[in-house]
């Protein structure tokens, strides 16, 4: 992949997320706050570093995209206003906007359902995991 494309993807992540990765001072408070930390292969503070290094493809392949809760604990507590959680959201968006990359399809739903599932869970899951 050319350096030019790297830079292009990096700026797209920054644009879509509205995050400020360059402001990060590597304190780790995002990762210290994250309820999904143990489930993630790339940790919240590393998301910021990956963007700074331009390695967006690795983020898009990360299983963390499905583990982040978008609970914004990292965004709320970040002392530098970096907004790491929004980077995860943006990377997921970039992935699922590609053809055939949906993380959830209607065919997947029946086996995930139970009688109590509230409508908003299905709504939001499709918003998050498919185009």
């Amino acid at each position: 992949m050319s350096g030019h494309l790297h830079e292009d993807m990096k700026s797209r992540v920054i644009d879509i997320s509205g995050a400020s990765p360059h402001k990060c001072m590597k304190c780790g408070k995002c990762s210290a706050s994250c309820p999904s930390f143990d489930e993630m292969d790339i940790k919240p503070h590393q998301f910021v570093s990956y963007v700074n290094n331009g390695d967006i493809e690795a983020l898009m392949a990360s299983k963390s995209l499905g583990k982040c809760l978008s609970c914004f604990a990292c965004v709320e507590r970040c002392p530098r206003d970096v907004k790491p959680g929004k980077i995860v959201d943006a990377a997921r968006q970039m992935l699922i906007r590609q053809q055939g990359q949906a993380m959830l399809t209607p065919e997947d739903v029946p086996e995930l359902l139970d009688p109590e599932v509230p409508q908003q869970l299905l709504m939001s899951a499709f918003r998050r995991y498919s185009r």
Binding site: E39, G66, K67, L69, L121, A125
Partner: peptide, 18 residues
Amino acid sequence: ECCGGYVSLKEKEMAGKM
């Protein structure tokens, strides 16, 4: 702290812990 929110559809075990 989050209840597991949106991931509970696909990650039931993880939401359960939370």
